[in-house]
Amino acid sequence: MTTQPRTPSGSPEGGQFERTPRPEALVGATLVSMSENGTDGSIYFPERLHSADEHLSWWSTVPVPDEVLQAVMDDYSNSRVVTVNSIVGKYQRMQKQPEWSDAEYAARVKDASLDFDRRVQQLKERIPEKLDRFAVRDAVRTHLAWTYRHTLPDEEQAKVEQTQVTVGDFRGTPAEVSTHYAMPGFSARQPEAFTRLPDDNAALRQQLAQLRAQIDAVDTTTKKIYVSDMVEQGYSADQIDADLRGERPGAPVGGRKALKSFKKS
């Protein structure tokens, strides 16, 4: 606690205090960004950059955890299917028009079905059946660069969208690279994979849950054996319940009475 001298000294009237000089407030101060060149940040908490060049440069080198890469590899076959389906959509049989004959309608349905199958096949050819593990890291980076392009000004977004990049044996725009490696499907199936830190304790919690289940199983088995032994000794159901609660069950009531007590319960 600090005190200030009163003015005039020793005068209680008014409770005046001497003015304490304070530094003038800063005028025209500018807040400086903690990181001007994107040296901070991660895929979970990325840097907001200012140009397409900075954006693509930062995303081309940002570390991607191996846990994320393994998840992408493990889920690739499903991600590929989801990516294809999201582009071609679900096949819907066309409605028959009144002016079509049955033969014409059947022919139109067949042509539409074949056309749909061709589109699906073309997409499957564009998206590899197996994911190149040497390309997966840059595939994730390119997908995220495409995903976060909205953080840039409109002109810079357009530059990102038009830029040609090479990932593995494929060259195209970031959107084309993302699709080629089925990244949209993975993001749809695991929406938090790129936005939430991996849970380092998940495996430990799973092991603890398994251990608890094993202990419960052993406890149940032991209790069954114990109860069976008490039944053989002639204890009734109420006596066994009391014993399990930690109370004294008293002397056994005998075999017949014990059996009757179980029938009643």
Rank of each mutant, 00 (worst) to 15 (best):
M1D: 12
R6K: 10
T7A: 14
P8H: 03
E13A: 12
E13S: 12
E13D: 10
F17G: 13
R22K: 13
E24Q: 09
A25W: 14
L26D: 12
V27R: 15
G28E: 11
G38Q: 04
G41L: 04
I43Y: 01
Y44V: 10
P46Y: 05
L49M: 07
H50T: 12
S51C: 07
A52V: 10
E54V: 07
V62E: 04
L69G: 01
Q70P: 04
A71H: 09
D75M: 09
Y76Q: 00
R80E: 00
V81N: 04
V82D: 01
Q92P: 08
Q95T: 13
P98Q: 01
S101N: 00
D102P: 13
Y105K: 04
R108F: 14
K110T: 15
K124A: 00
K124F: 00
E125D: 15
P128G: 02
R133Y: 06
A139C: 05
H143I: 00
H143A: 14
A145T: 06
T147N: 09
T147H: 11
Y148N: 05
E156D: 08
Q162W: 08
Q164F: 03
V167S: 02
D169M: 03
G172P: 12
G172M: 03
E176M: 03
Y181D: 02
P184E: 01
G185W: 04
R189S: 15
R196H: 10
P198I: 04
D200C: 06
D200E: 10
R205H: 08
Q206F: 13
A209R: 15
A213Q: 15
A213N: 10
A217T: 12
T220S: 12
Y226H: 08
Y226L: 09
M230G: 09
E232W: 07
Y235D: 07
A237Y: 13
D238Q: 09
D238V: 08
I240C: 04
L244G: 00
G246A: 01
R248N: 12
P252N: 03
L259F: 14
K264I: 07
